[in-house]
Write a protein that binds this DNA or RNA. Structure first.
Lengths: 336, 336
DNA sequence: CTGAAAGCGCTAACAT
DNA sequence: ATGTTAGCGCTTTCAG
């Protein structure tokens, strides 16, 4: 059993002091002679610095905690992959936590994260309690909300322009000639869902129409599917804006295969996110694109700046997303 | 700024020694009096033990490195979620690495993991170089391959019964009356893909049929879709077994919407994995279920046992998966 | 530029 | 059961 090789072993073999070894591996200045000798010895012995010891003394772990709620919504695995790449490129690693639960659940998880001395936290689509937010602030550990707004605009957060996105959908549906328009919203407890819903209602009114009905889809497939059925049967809607693609796929399936309706001929469906699947022919879903690449970049940038101690940073970052028109809605009438 | 609270501060306030505090938080024995005093002081000061310091001295980080390649294949986000739950329940956390790359890429990533003193590594669907495998062994860090076999059966690995799964599909397709059967395999460089392909070919022969053609789908949607088109046009196949659901969805879409064919009337499609989407009406895919819950449990169990120093453990664990018959193939003819 | 020495916050003998 | 002591492997003053 290869006992663990320490910087002391390397120092002995290279004929230098242990601190010289440390300098070489932490990029501090050293003469070429020293560097060469240390490198040779390290390679020979298979030495690699122990980052745990390093973290203990520097107080930084180079680890980012990522809390994420829904991995069954394809938007998040996609974002996770981008986060991993982006952060790895900056020398950070991701400690991951799934938190599909209550606030207290999430708090426990984040407390764990804190114990691990993470340098920063990304909360993807989950809310943190005020107590926890305070604690992070007390420990000077930055938290950035990803795809999750907060009522408190001073909390660092990155979202797409949800209100504007909702408006875009409204304007388009009205222009396309739909008359009885409903909305299956994202969970009303989430700012993101609220904003989309409010933007949609606002856009409808501004376009001279109005919302026939609105139901909370809770970000759940079954809830959304049942809501869609009700909307069609009870309100005879001809278009439904669904709060995200994840639910929209369920609605599409239910309408087509359970109810035998045609989309878009009987009912038009619009989603939100433009996850890769939305472009698949089986769905061909009209949706608002959330540019996850840019959202992730903004989040990472913001988080690292905060870690570096940046003070004057606009905490709220909204990224615009365009409406992608596909076959789940009828095409816009040609301009005269 | 709340300076960091250490066990020393707690000790001072509780009127006990620092080691008493340590004992209380690491679960060693202590009198009720001490425990109470320490708890009170800790709560008051907001103390939490620093796990980095603990790791440094115990030599265990309670962190598991998870290396994963394809998050766009829904099987993996699902597994990730299960891993997270399972491991969290055991007091472990997941340091995640995305490695969609070459071997050298993966090696760099795992070297990184090793630097972080992870207690164990789960390699989901990626191969590690021999050099790295050796290094892990040298450092006594267990590695378990998840959904990824290896030519070396002494490497701990958890897979479904891929060969048997391929056989099941073959037997079923022949019994259902298909005559011209082809296979779009998973990447031939992966043991998993190979085993399914070999089992399929074997099953076909045993059922008195044979493989008309086989193409490597590389686990890529586009490759699989193009292969399917070729198979239909050049070989006039009436059934295709696709190496996993991820590719099968692409094939289904391409056949139906690009080529205007009917599945299953013109061509039958079978996948492998039974990811949640396979059950959606839009796909309704016949497939072999990989019981990801049980696979994850087996992997975690094996990994933790290895970490605890367990020696006599069967390294290879295969979990049986049943064939789920849905609408992408015609139903079996009734037994006479 | 380099070595010696002092810790980072904690656990683990070892005494008491 | 509890306090004392000695580190875990490294970074970081501080002299030289």
């Amino acid at each position: 059993m290869n006992r663990k090789v320490t910087s002391l072993d390397v120092a002995a073999r290279a004929g230098v002091s242990q601190s010289a070894v440390s300098r070489v591996f932490s990029g501090a200045s050293a003469s070429q002679r020293t560097v060469d000798a240390v490198r040779e010895a390290a390679d020979h012995l298979g030495y690699r610095p122990n980052v745990v010891a390093r973290s203990l003394i520097t107080g930084r772990s180079k680890i980012i905690g990522l809390v994420v709620a829904y991995l069954d919504n394809a938007f998040y695995p996609d974002a996770l992959e981008r986060f991993s790449n982006e952060l790895q490129a900056q020398g950070y690693h991701i400690l991951i936590f799934m938190a599909h639960g209550t606030t207290s659940d999430i708090d426990r998880v984040v407390a764990d994260l804190l114990d691990h001395q993470v340098d920063g936290i990304i909360a993807a689509s989950v809310g943190l309690s005020d107590a926890l937010t305070d604690r992070c602030r007390g420990l000077n550990i930055p938290v950035v909300l990803f795809n999750r707004g907060d009522a408190d605009p001073s909390l660092p957060q990155v979202t797409s322009a949800n209100f504007a996105g909702g408006q875009k959908v409204a304007k388009y549906l009205v222009q396309a000639g739909y008359q009885r328009i409903a909305h299956i919203s994202g969970w009303s407890g989430s700012k993101t869902g609220q904003d989309r819903a409010e933007g949609f209602a606002d856009g409808l009114v501004k376009a001279g129409s109005q919302l026939i009905a609105q139901v909370d889809g809770m970000y759940k497939r079954e809830v959304a599917a049942a809501a869609a059925q009700d909307l069609v049967q009870t309100y005879a809607v001809d278009a439904i804006f669904v709060g995200n693609d994840h639910m929209a796929f369920a609605v599409l399936d239910h309408l087509r295969f359970e109810m035998g309706l045609s989309v878009p001929d009987d009912v038009a469906i619009v989603g939100y996110d433009d996850v890769p699947m939305a472009a698949w022919s089986a769905f061909d879903l009209t949706t608002v694109r959330q540019p996850s690449g840019r959202m992730v970049q903004a989040t990472v940038y913001m988080l690292l700046a905060l870690i570096e101690g940046e003070e004057n940073l606009a905490p709220k970052h909204e990224i615009d997303g365009e409406l992608i028109i596909r076959g789940s809605t009828r095409a816009l009438e040609q301009e005269a």
